[in-house]
Amino acid sequence: MTQTHSKARQQAEIAFGHTQSDFFARGHAVEELDSITQAREEKTLRLRHARLAKEAQDIATASAGLIAKRASKS
């Protein structure tokens, strides 16, 4: 059972469909950008922790070397 609608109603339905499609497309794009941003922030945090750990290790190694050098002079 097909219903026939006026031309104005058909155009309105088509326009509404396009509006809904645009709305959902924007939502999808925002979600995608959010996930990219979150991944970038997680990677930055992981790299920051790795850099700080390496710097701490380098400082500890340098300190140990200086301590050993002072101990050998005494």
Score class of each variant (00 low, 15 high):
Thr4Ala: 10
Glu13Ser: 07
Met1Val: 11
Thr44Ile: 13
Ala56His: 04
Ala39Cys: 02
Ala12Met: 05
Phe23Tyr: 15
Ala12Gly: 05
Ala8Asn: 04
Glu31Cys: 03
Val30Ile: 15
Thr44Gly: 00
Arg9Gly: 00
Thr61Glu: 13
Gln11His: 07
Glu31Val: 01
Ala60Lys: 13
Leu47Pro: 00
Ser6Ala: 14
Arg46Trp: 04
Ala8Arg: 06
Thr4Pro: 00
Asp34Leu: 03
Lys7Phe: 14
Ala56Asn: 06
His28Leu: 11
Arg51Lys: 12
Glu13Lys: 09
Ile14Trp: 13
Gln38Ser: 06
Ile59Asp: 08
Gln11Ile: 08
Ala39Glu: 09
Ala53Gly: 02
Ala12Ile: 04
Glu32Pro: 00
Val30Arg: 14
His49Thr: 07
Phe16Thr: 09
Thr4Cys: 04
Leu45Pro: 03
Thr44Met: 08
Gln20Met: 09
Gln11Ser: 14
Ala12Thr: 10
His5Lys: 15
Ala50Met: 06
Arg51Cys: 03
Ala25Trp: 02
Gly17Thr: 01
Ala25Pro: 00
Thr37Ala: 03
Phe24Asn: 15
Leu33Ile: 03
Arg26Leu: 13
Thr2Leu: 11
Thr61Phe: 09
Glu42Arg: 02
Met1Phe: 13
Ala25Leu: 04
His49Ala: 11
Gln57Phe: 10
Glu13Trp: 09
Arg40Trp: 00
Gln38Lys: 13
Thr4Gln: 15
Gln38His: 06
His49Gln: 11
Leu52Ser: 02
Phe16Leu: 14
Phe23Val: 03
Lys54Tyr: 03
Arg40Tyr: 01
Phe23Asp: 03
Thr4Gly: 04
Arg26Val: 05
Ser6Thr: 15
Thr61His: 15
His5Gly: 02
Arg26Glu: 14
Leu45Gln: 10
Ala15Val: 02
Glu41Pro: 00
Ala15Met: 06
Ala56Gln: 09
Ile14Asp: 10
Ile36Pro: 00
Val30Gln: 14
Ser35Leu: 06
Thr37Phe: 00
Ala56Lys: 09
Glu55Tyr: 04
Met1Thr: 05
Gly27Thr: 05
Asp58Asn: 09
Lys7Asp: 15
Gln38Leu: 07
Ala12Tyr: 09
Leu47Ala: 07
Lys7Tyr: 11
Leu52Thr: 02
Ser21Pro: 02
Leu45Thr: 09
Ala25Met: 04
